[in-house]
Design a protein around this nucleic acid. Structure first.
Lengths: 233, 233
DNA sequence: GAATATCATCATGTATGCAAGATGGTATTC
DNA sequence: GAATACCATCTTGCATACATGATGATATTC
């Protein structure tokens, strides 16, 4: 699980920061939800000061908005932003893959090979497990290319997209496709065919993006249908 | 001048945040300098609370470090980090230029053309002026490509590099070279020759990077020579 | 004189207090 | 009944108070 780092020697601000972000990822706080510093402080058994510092950070990172003297809000879905983040993600990962292919030594991709280049019978088929592994796959690609700043930026983008990407692994065929595409990308990188690896990666991400968009629109449509009668009294 | 945005309706936290960052850019706070929250609070006529919030943000963005119960420190020079940031900057700007060349409509580059595509007699030759225009040139390229998230990330990187880039415009030949290279890049983008524009941009940034490194090493060398006798008593 | 132990001072991390203003419900008016 | 005015409540932004522990100067010991 991608839970908090070591709890030892961590400031309250950091703990609250991580907990709030996790609540957003888990949909415990839904996009558009409003809340107050006091609520959060009580829920996390802290005072408003560390809560405010955590919220200030989350605001800067685009997870929440502050409403002047009127509470806070989980940033509502913004598909335009998601598209921009996907595009940026592709740019960074393509650059990372190119670097990996042109690296002097051999890039360290063992962890990825051990998970993704396995016999069909050894594959995981649990949605959440594969989703997490998928995220690690892409993060690892960027980390392996050796540019820490690039990895940091990419990590932030990944977190911003996490809320929406989890939708992609609710269906079995997508898991299958992910295995095949990741395997192909890895093999192409190992063969150091930069151009092709970049193309494969781009298609892979864009397919996932398209799938997410499709399902999201479907969900929104259904939600609208279901909740249509707001009050029957 | 790249001074604070409108002072009206800006929180103290934001004001302190901007002022501190500007002090770092202006070398009023030197890399490695240590300071306390109380000092800053008094200097900015604020309490520690907004100062802390501003510092928390600056820490997350890599401008300062906190020393547990022992004050704060302006992040010392780290040339390895600078190299990584330069590399990331090239990746983003190359992607932006490609987008500009492949855009449907005509990209909005008028402001850049008006400054950089002028007769030699109309050129600016003041170091700081050209330095600022240079920064705007690169920022504008990324903004013009239309991806706001990309522009945001690129803007942050630009600010992290600002401290060191100003060194590049202390010499007349570099100003001359900047004019010629920017002009060439602009013309190539207008002609929509993506590949060549990317190459020109990369060379341009790397030349500037090399120049900065050369001068910095020279300055460090001189500084070391000058300050060699730490105490003569 | 050099090294170590001690202690007052100071720094951050956190909690709490306070003021200006936004909000939502209620009473009032037409 | 609908629209408006009013008021108590709540929320953030900022200032201040306090506790723990890091630091550096001083005293002590060999």
């Amino acid at each position: 699980m991608l839970v908090n780092q070591k709890a030892e020697r961590m400031s309250l601000t950091e703990r609250v920061y991580g907990a709030l972000k996790q609540e957003i990822f888990d949909f415990a706080l839904l996009p558009g939800d409003r809340f107050t510093e006091k609520e959060v402080a009580e829920r996390m058994s802290a005072s408003r000061t560390p809560v405010r510092e955590a919220l200030t950070l989350l605001q800067r990172e685009g997870f929440v908005d502050v409403l002047f003297r009127a509470g806070w809000q989980v940033k509502p879905f913004d598909f335009h932003k998601f598209d921009q983040l996907y595009e940026l993600r592709i740019i960074l990962e393509q650059a990372a893959v190119r670097k990996l292919c042109e690296m002097d030594g051999k890039p360290d991709l063992d962890a990825l090979k051990n998970f993704w280049l396995v016999a069909a019978s050894d594959r995981q088929d649990d949605g959440p497990t594969v989703r997490e592994a998928d995220e690690r796959f892409h993060i690892h690609l960027v980390e392996a290319c050796g540019n820490e700043e690039m990895a940091r930026v990419h990590h932030n983008i990944t977190e911003r997209l996490r809320i929406i990407r989890r939708i992609d692994f609710t269906q079995r065929p997508r898991i299958e496709a992910t295995y095949q595409e990741h395997a192909k990308i890895l093999r192409t990188i190992i063969k150091r065919r930069a151009e092709q690896a970049q193309l494969l990666l781009k298609s892979h991400i864009e397919e996932s993006q398209a799938e997410v968009r499709k399902i999201t629109l479907h969900m929104l449509h259904e939600a609208r249908q279901t909740q249509s009668p707001p009050r029957s009294a």
